[in-house]
Design a protein around this nucleic acid. Structure first.
Lengths: 107, 107
DNA sequence: CGTATTCATCGTTAAAGAGCGATAGAAGAA
DNA sequence: TTCTTCTATCGCTCTTTAACGATGAATACG
């Protein structure tokens, strides 16, 4: 389980808080194997260095993993972490939409 | 319905991408009515101006709404928007964990 | 060997974010 | 009216982010 703290949730939110990074995740989801930085760059109107930076943000957030393949670095989603974040979000939203605390705490 | 675009999702993610703002949402969820900026500030180790800024981010993201009450401004969650964002997240994560596209599209 | 590819990193610039104190305006209280 | 409370906003500083080009290291190809 190892449920996420607010700091962790905030970090993940920030990592996903850029449309280009959402695009990168979608691209990786479709071409899940052997997708390298150049592949991603070709699908985006950005310089390679910029895409590499965005991928690094996703790497640091643990949402993506890297494995070398010859001269290329291939990336793929960390579905475990995505699922973990997904349930953390559910928990967050449920907690927020719960009724306000009553005057007395229940036993 | 009016499903959210990636830009919208990214904006919401960024709005939630700070632990203080998550705290503010939790505070509003508990004291849902008549919670003003001073109330929130008293529960956080931050200056009033800083809290006001964070609330403004949540306001601009549409996650919170304001209504004046005498000399105070009261805030409460926009549960509709939170729910909308919640399902957008579910959709996002489901889409990401879906199988990679096959060589040929199905009919 | 030399020549491409690939890509992370550096250095730079411009913009955005975070935090604070001070302040002014609005609304209630005296 | 005068005083107090509440709060959004301004001005400031410091840090972070975004984007780019250039570069060097690593691997493959010839």
């Amino acid at each position: 389980m190892n449920t996420l703290l607010d700091d962790d949730i905030a970090n993940l939110m920030r990592a996903l808080g850029h449309p280009v990074r959402l695009s990168i995740l979608r691209i990786l989801a479709q071409r899940d194997s052997d997708c390298c930085c150049t592949d991603v760059t070709q699908m985006l109107p950005l310089a390679q260095s910029t895409v590499s930076q965005h991928i690094k943000v996703l790497l640091d957030a643990g949402l993506v993993e890297r494995h070398a393949k010859g001269t290329r670095n291939c990336y793929k989603l960390r579905t475990d972490r995505l699922a973990q974040f997904g349930s953390a979000c559910s928990g967050l939203f449920n907690g927020l939409s719960a009724e306000p605390a009553p005057i007395k705490e229940l036993v």
